[in-house]
């Protein structure tokens, strides 16, 4: 298979995937649309975490908290009558700045301490959501979060809101695709592969790591901004440490460091109760077993398995081509 046809095939697969995501929902009921919207939103948060984890090699245990910050920003701002885009700006800025402030001292001290600091932050954020009643309405939550309108076009209906989420996912995905191919993205990966070498080549490692973490965090905020109008209600209970751990699992299960990894991981996690309907109440147990077995087998997740399979086939094809090209060399 030549490189050209491979690119063609990949483009075709991508087009088929997009077509399915656009067309299949036309046949779905409200539940299906809601679940798919949830998938798109969780995918955005997971793509952000994948930048931090998969490309810059930093463990963040606070992505759920950033989703919470985004969701609260959206709920508070839009219930005051402001448009969702204002919430988006606030959420992205807030998450970026908080990410920077968290990461700066943590990374100054030692590399893996970012995980501990974000763990603490995640729990603190939950306490603030719950306790600061004047701002967040506390444990009662904020009801009546409106769905947005886009250029005078109301997006309240489930199908329209799904397309809105899907479009957001498309933009974020394209942005991530561009980012990892940009010089920045290469610097991120250099950091992950060999921080010492990156430093000796003149990459300001701390700044790039921070940048990756802050951008990843603000994507968590973007996901939150969509989450609030999807559910139309926000209270602190979803944004515990559990959500952060869950997002981390999505990225690892899908395949960290692969662009499509988070999308796949989020699909498995969000549709989990559906996949495992046969197991009745046992689906969390089955999921946990699946994650353990998968990681023992392939630490790079599902896409890691696919990747290795393709690499093996390529290698076999290459050696076959080599032996075909020089028959005389053989005795």
């Amino acid at each position: 298979m030549t490189g050209r046809t491979k690119t063609m095939l990949a483009a075709l697969a991508l087009a088929a995937g997009i077509a399915a995501l656009v067309l299949v929902p036309l046949l779905l009921n409200r539940y299906g649309l809601y679940i798919l919207s949830m998938w798109a939103i969780m995918s955005i948060a997971a793509i952000g975490l994948n930048l931090t984890l998969g490309y810059a090699g930093q463990v963040s245990l606070a992505q759920g908290a950033f989703v919470g910050i985004g969701a609260y920003a959206a709920a508070i701002i839009t219930t005051q009558g402001w448009p969702l885009v204002a919430a988006l700006v606030v959420a992205v800025a807030l998450c970026f700045v908080i990410g920077w402030l968290l990461g700066y001292p943590a990374l100054r001290v030692q590399h893996h301490y970012l995980a501990f600091v974000t763990l603490a932050f995640s729990t603190l954020a939950y306490l603030v959501f719950r306790n600061e009643e004047w701002l967040t309405k506390g444990i009662y939550g904020i009801t009546g979060v409106p769905r947005p309108t886009l250029f005078g076009w109301p997006l309240a209906a489930p199908l329209r809101f799904y397309y809105f989420c899907l479009a957001a996912l498309g933009i974020v995905f394209a942005g991530a695709w561009w980012l990892v191919r940009s010089p920045w993205g290469r610097a991120f990966m250099a950091l992950r592969e060999n921080p010492m070498r990156a430093m000796s080549l003149g990459v300001d490692t701390r700044r790039y790591t921070l940048m990756a973490f802050a951008i990843g965090s603000s994507l968590g905020g973007v996901a939150g901004v969509l989450y609030a109008p999807l559910v139309e209600f926000i209270d602190p209970t979803p944004f515990t440490l559990g959500l952060s751990l869950n997002l981390l699992m999505m990225v690892i299960v899908g395949g960290s460091g692969f662009l499509f990894g988070p999308l796949l991981g989020a699909l498995i996690s969000v549709l989990l109760p559906e996949w495992l309907r046969f197991s009745e109440g046992l689906y969390l147990i089955v999921y946990a077993l699946f994650v353990m077995i998968l990681l023992a087998w392939s630490p790079t997740g599902i896409l890691g398995i696919v990747d290795r399979y393709l690499a093996r086939r390529r290698a076999r094809a290459a050696s076959a081509a080599r032996s075909a090209a020089m028959p005389e060399a053989l005795p």
């Binding site: 463990v59 699992m249 690892i252 969390l284 147990i285 999921y287 946990a288 994650v291 353990m292 990681l295």
Partner: peptide
Amino acid sequence: AIATMALSIF
């Protein structure tokens, strides 16, 4: 570490 998270759920 992730596997132990899954173990805790399990």
